[in-house]
Every structure is written in C-alpha cells, then in structure tokens.
Design a protein around this nucleic acid. Structure first.
Lengths: 198, 198
DNA sequence: CTCGCATTTCAGAAATTTTTGAAATCCAGG
DNA sequence: CCTGGATTTCAAAAATTTCTGAAATGCGAG
C-alpha cells in the first residue's frame, strides 16, 4: 500500500510525537495509520506502508494491544490478523487516559502514600514528607475527579466540557440554591482526605 | 549533602518516572530533590546529593528552567545560583499542564487543522480527513475546557474537582432551570465548530 | 584589565532504546 | 503427524539519548 502525501504527513507527524509521549516512532506511526485507515490492516500491509521490518510491526502491534488501543479482526478465508482502532474517538481518549493513569500516576501515588506513612527522622524528612503528602492529596483529588467523570456518557461529557468555566457560575448558583433547603455542602478541599491503604 | 533513605527513595522514584514522561532520569531526580528540599540548593549541592557530574546538573537545571519549573534565588554574599520549585503545588500543576499542552498538543492540533484544509484526492484521503477533523474537534473541546478552568482560582478549582460527577446532577438541574427564563442552551457537541485559522 | 569562582558548552563515551533478520514457534488443514 | 503460511522471539546492529570531563565563557571584585 502506497501512502498519499497527506496521509504520509499525518503518519510521520504521529511518529515524531510518539517520542514525546512514551512510545517509539514506529508504534506512533502504526497507530496513526490504523487510525485513518478506512478498514482493518494486516501486519504486512503495515510493513509495506511504513517501510519497516516485519518484526518491528509485530512488536509494535503487541505494544498497542498492551495499551488496549487496537482491536483484532478476522476476515473470512484469511487467517492473517487484521487490526483497527476503536471507531469512537472518545473511546480512544478514555483508553489513553486510563492507561496513562495506570502507568504514570498510580505507581507514584503508591510511593507517595508509602513514604508519607514512615516516621520522619530528621527535620528535612519532616518537610519532605509534608511535601509528599500534599502531592498525594492533590493527585487523589485529580484522580478522584477523573474517576467520576470517566463514567459520564460521551455527550454528557461533551456538554460538561463545552460548559467550561461557566461551571463557576453554576457553582455559585448552586451555593445560593443550596442555602434554601438548609443543607450544608461538604467544603471541598479543607478536610484532610486520609485515604491510606490498610 | 547526604540524603536520608526516605528522600533517596523519593528522588530515585521520580528519576524512574521521569523516563516515562519526556524527561531524563537526572532531570527527574533534580526536580524531586528541589521539590522536597526545605530551602534552595545550588548546583554543587545537587551534584553531591545525586552523584552525577556537574555539567549534567547544569544541563538539567537549564531544561527545568525551560519548563518554567524552577525559580532562581540568590543568597546574600554568595554569587552561586540557588534553585527552588514553586511553593504552591497547584502552581506546579498549572505549569506542567501548560508546558505539556504547548509541546504535546498544540503542534498536533496545528498539523490536524492544516491537513484537514487540504482537498482530498482519493477516497482513502477523504476518510482520513474525516478522522483528522474529528480529532481536531475533540482536541479543541478539551483544550477549550482547559483554557477555561485554568483561570479559576485554586480553591474554586478544588471545589470543582471535588464535585466530580455530581456535576451531572447540576447539569440536569440547570437544564430544568434554563427552561424558565426561556433561553436556549447552545447544545454542546452537535454544531460543527469550524475554527479554522485565517 | 586581571583574578578567581561559577556556569555553560561541547565532543566523545556510555547507556539505553529501537530496529532488524534469522530462527523458533504456532496452528489450521490435509 | 506433516506442511506451509503467519506470527513471535531474540540476539545483535543501529540509532538515539544521556552523561561526562575538559575547555570555554561569564562576570563581579579588586
């Protein structure tokens, strides 16, 4: 398969960006190619389009499968594996967010919690620990929010996003309204969220 | 300066994670060290604490300055440069988000817009272009939201985050309320947001 | 201007990551 | 149990990134 200049540009760009993310150039290119391809591709088609070795394609696809970013398909009377990306682009975003969180955030949160539990021996450690605890709380707040919104349906999510900062107005409105039924709103940041593991 | 085991663990962990992000091990370690240090450090203190070459520290600090992630300080009667991280951890998050957007998102959005404007020559290109346009719109929605919320004060942001999915309830409430004054809400996703550059 | 300390630059060395080709493995038919 | 296409594995080569030491540069004080 011969790529048109336009598709070529796209694929090459994603290859470049791939390195700024944690993936290799080839993996980025493979994904870009599958993403814009109107139908599933097999490993040899990918190899030909990208001009890389067959084994490199195999490894790249394996990595993408590890990221849950590709779907395996089969064509009748053809025992080769064909690959696609999910149709729904929001699904891709969700997967990316989930996997990056798993790899880049969760391990750090574990370490921070762990270190925050130790008894400090020096003044420097006391300070360091305060910093770490602060970081852990921030990550918990962010990931807690993420865990909530990731459950929203796509169009609710889009609605929320397009609302943007106007949410602030709504928060204010809610403040005023919530006075009426006499219910106190839990005050957001202040109470130390001690979510240590057992 | 000799690091305690606890601080050592933290610094080493950040070094490891550094590679999963786009930074080198040393840069990650330098940042971790500055982050937990109760006061500013100079290049030689960092070199000693991390056991790396002086030039490596210099380059690492330069990179961190490029990311806007460190502040330069000066002590009286000492002409060496001392470095700290911003006190406010949310400030750090804001800077990180801003810089990563600039490096990882914006260039892609530019390419996507550019390619989406070209006239497709084949059916494959037509499909690819649709995919790219879809992606561009999604990125615009996400970054538009980000541009909005990044202006919120920290405690408003925290309030918003801790609200999480309960926002959905508020959205529903707003739906109902907005009927009263007779104003139509712009429906979020549906209208094609043609935000091409001139 | 010169000295002395501080920082930066930079070319090469070291380490790490990516890519490859060949061999091994897998597996559906026959 | 063979066969042959398809895929995977893996050790080595290639490419890239990171790190270092030495030399160059910067700069305030005298």
């Amino acid at each position: 398969m011969q790529l048109t200049p336009m598709i070529q540009s796209f694929v090459l760009h994603f290859g470049e960006m791939g390195s700024r993310w944690g993936i290799s150039r080839t993996v980025g290119q493979i994904y870009a190619l599958l993403f814009v391809s109107p139908e599933p591709l097999n490993a040899d088609q990918i190899r030909e389009a990208l001009g890389v070795s067959r084994s490199n394609v195999s490894m790249g696809l394996k990595e993408l499968q590890g990221w849950n970013l590709v779907r395996l398909k089969h064509l009748p009377d053809d025992r080769r594996d064909y690959f696609t990306t999910p149709e729904d682009i929001w699904e891709i975003v969700r997967i990316l967010a989930e996997e990056r969180k798993k790899r880049e955030i969760d391990p750090t949160l574990t370490v921070l919690r762990d270190l925050s539990m130790q008894t400090p021996t020096t003044e420097a450690e006391r300070h360091a620990q305060a910093r770490m605890a602060e970081t852990a709380r921030m990550i918990e707040l962010l990931t807690g929010w993420y865990d909530d919104v990731k459950r929203l349906e796509t169009d609710r999510l889009a609605q929320l996003l397009s609302l943007g900062a106007r949410v602030q107005k709504i928060l204010e409105m809610k403040d005023r309204l919530s006075v009426v039924p006499g219910r106190r709103r839990p005050s957001g940041l202040e109470p130390a969220t001690e979510t240590g593991e057992p």
